[in-house]
Design a protein around this nucleic acid. Structure first.
Length: 211
DNA sequence: TGCCAGGCCCTCTTTAGGGCCTT
């Protein structure tokens, strides 16, 4: 697969449409099956951290007050990922904050998002839970020492994405898995994985699908 | 003061409702 950027936000809440802001961002670049570069920063958007969020993430109001301005951090991370396609776990959440924070500095996303949770629903249909930590445990991947921090979660999502790629290669005999195939897979209906791979994975084929 | 997300997915569904997942 070509280079991808796996990102993760920590925020003050669930919806930028209701005034919630980002407090931390991490992005890891994944190339040729491994993480090759990392960006991480707290950011100061001038907001207090709700007690629930501080308990969840360990990020306090004092910590973000000492952090660089959100505008500076978003400009840096946007430059860091460039035009590389993006991946996030439950990407609907991260894409909304990515777009909202970028719009505050007059910039616009120029690439698409793939959601590792939606891909996992197709590739790991037996999973009892699709929380990031649960999928990492099910797949036997190394778990982060401190979940709910941006870099730790971005690295776990990156390892999960690489696992999903390996699973697709193993089960369908694909030489490689393209980002475009992941985009297709996350949108197929349940039980539509094999047909999707047969139809759109042909350029990746290194053997026969196992069925 | 109280309320505020959004998309996917399942089922006791489809003229709906509720759980999951992200913080």
């Amino acid at each position: 697969m070509d280079t991808i950027a796996v990102i993760d936000f920590e925020t003050t809440g669930l919806s930028p449409a209701h005034g919630e802001r980002a407090t931390e961002i991490a992005a890891v670049l994944v190339r040729e099956g491994r993480i090759v570069d990392r960006y991480q920063s707290l950011m100061n958007a001038g907001r207090r951290i709700p007690p629930f969020i501080e308990a969840l993430t360990g990020i306090s109001t004092a910590m973000v007050r000492q952090a660089p301005p959100a505008e500076q951090v978003m400009a840096e991370v946007a430059d860091f990922v460039g035009t590389v396609p993006l991946v996030a776990h439950n990407a609907g959440f991260d894409s909304r904050f990515w777009d909202a924070e970028l719009s505050r500095i007059g910039r616009q996303r120029c690439q698409s998002f793939v959601c590792s949770m939606l891909v996992a629903r197709r590739v790991m249909p037996e999973a009892a839970s699709y929380k990031l930590g649960s999928l990492v445990a099910i797949a036997g991947l190394p778990s982060a020492a401190r979940a709910h921090r941006a870099l730790a979660d971005a690295e776990m999502a990156a390892h999960l994405t690489l696992y999903l790629e390996r699973e697709l290669q193993r089960r369908f005999g694909l030489a490689t898995v393209t980002y475009e195939l992941l985009e297709r897979i996350q949108k197929v209906p349940k039980r539509g994985l094999q047909r999707c791979v047969e139809r759109y994975g042909s350029s990746c084929t290194g053997g026969q699908a196992e069925g």
